[in-house]
Amino acid sequence: MNEMGFGLRVAEYLSVSNRTLDGRALERLRVARTRALAVSDTGSRGSFYDDLQAWWVRVRLAFSPVMSSSAMLLVLLALFFAGGQWSSSHRFEAQQAIDTALLIDDLPIEAYLDPEFRAWLARESRS
């Protein structure tokens, strides 16, 4: 993990942790952050690539809670979809096994389509 990634990870943990802080602590953090950003802005300018990375980090920080929720939603949707597919695939296999059995069975398909045959068999077994 590079420096930027590490910073991002720390920022994400801090974003999650600050939900439990009271208003005064949050305000102090906000002021400290503003100061740090001001110092950062007046510091030496990096290359275009550094600026781009810094901009990306700000975007990630700003959208971190949203992205986190979206990722969770995506995972849930994907799991739901995969679960549906697995269930449908399981049904498909079971149905295919019965269809094959019906095609090769010693009884003709007609026997399985006749609703009276089963009732007649039941009566015959009782008599």
Binding site: A101, L107, A111, Y112
Partner: peptide, 10 residues
């Protein structure tokens, strides 16, 4: 579907 049900039953 009817044939499959009857098959399972029989």
């Amino acid at each position: 579907d009817r044939a499959r049900q009857q098959y399972r039953a029989l």
